[in-house]
């Protein structure tokens, strides 16, 4: 009772990175709250899951193993969590802000009448005093997230309803093994007790899921372009630079919205959070929503023809000039000096 639950999602039968990141954060929060960290996995052929999650400090692992639970569909996974949460009464439930977590979380929160905060960028434990009601709440989950397109940061709490639910995007939290020998308990759920046949109302007819095209989350160097690149053709310059210096190409939301780059390259609050050793921002003005996703880069170079661009304030090097001029020069002098 009153433990911290993480719903772990699977990618090709393996626990997704975002879920392992949440387990890491969940372990820290559970220590602070002096409660157990519990994980739920629903899918098919889950024999290898325990070995994947226990090193992250999971105390109890619930497995719902049924052919019909993979791939994910909304209703069966919702029913499973609804019933399990009613039985176990977790104080906190976390899931990834992915197309699965953002489909499942709202549905579960609606069924349980508990609050859900999407896309949190930070989770903390703290107290809350409701002066009007004269009540003090101990050890609430502070769900911290950007609002209004990233222009403000709001701290959200759920004083009265449980579980306190939150989703977090991939890459926002850090993934860290607590101990390779950490051992928890496995509890296998009798799926027919949790899910009814009528839950399988949505049929998957076709599914084409590709391996991730870009791997910007783990890239040591990222060359990123914004709306200031001007066109999809100019974006090719960034791919050229990236190929030469061994980098991945990222993009701002504005560049993705304009069709210059694919969505999976988007860096920022509504994209991926990155922490490379070098981030080269080309034609990016530096909206808050972008900066929030790359400010922890070890070194930042900003290339912009606007010397007052907000991104310059957080950059280590500011090159004022046209990207179309500067980027080819970077390529040229890297080639000249690299051997």
């Amino acid at each position: 009772m009153n433990n911290l639950f993480v719903y772990c999602e699977l990618e090709d039968g393996v626990v997704a990175d975002v879920s392992l990141e949440l387990l890491t954060k969940g372990r820290t929060l559970a220590n602070r709250l002096n409660c157990k960290l519990e994980a739920v996995v629903a899918g098919y052929q889950l024999d290898k899951i325990a070995a994947q999650v226990f090193p992250y400090g999971v105390d109890v692992l619930y497995l719902a193993d049924d052919k019909r639970l993979a791939p994910y569909t909304s209703l069966p996974h919702t029913s499973l969590l609804n019933k399990l949460f009613k039985e176990e009464e977790p104080q906190i439930a976390l899931m990834g802000a992915t197309s699965i977590g953002r489909d499942l979380g709202p549905r579960v929160s609606s069924a349980l009448g508990s609050g859900l905060t999407a896309d949190c960028t930070s989770l903390e434990i703290g107290d809350h005093e409701d002066k009007k009601a004269g009540k003090t709440y101990k050890d609430l989950l502070y769900q911290i997230r950007p609002a209004f397109g990233g222009n403000i940061v709001a701290t959200i709490i759920n004083p009265d309803c449980r579980p306190q639910m939150a989703t977090v995007r991939e890459g926002v939290m850090k993934k860290e093994i607590i101990s390779p020998d950490y051992k928890g308990e496995v509890r296998k759920l009798d799926v027919s007790n949790y899910v009814s046949d009528t839950d399988f109302i949505v049929k998957i007819i076709e599914r084409q899921i590709e391996k991730a095209k870009s791997n910007i989350k783990n890239a040591p160097i990222i060359v990123s372009g914004g709306y200031g690149m001007g066109s999809k053709e100019n974006f090719q310059l960034l791919f050229d630079l990236a190929a030469v210096i061994g980098a991945e190409v990222g993009a701002s939301r504005a560049a993705v919205d304009a069709g210059f780059a694919e969505h999976d390259r988007q860096v920022g609050q509504t994209g991926v959070t990155v922490r490379p050793k070098l981030y080269i921002a080309c034609g990016i003005s530096g909206q808050i929503q972008h900066i929030a996703g790359m400010q922890e880069s070890a070194m930042i170079i900003a290339i912009n023809n606007d010397s007052n661009a907000p991104i310059n304030a957080i950059a280590d090097y500011v090159i004022t000039g046209d990207v179309e001029t500067v980027v080819p020069k970077l390529i040229k002098y890297y080639k000249k000096n690299s051997k």
Binding site: A154, T155, I156, I314, Y317, G321, V326
Partner: peptide, 22 residues
């Protein structure tokens, strides 16, 4: 069920940047 406890402006750590010409 959710309440807004606090709203803050976003403040970033400003670095001392080195300016470079093109």
């Amino acid at each position: 069920p959710t309440k807004v406890k606090a709203i803050e402006n976003v403040v970033f750590q400003v670095k001392e940047s080195k300016s470079i010409s093109d």
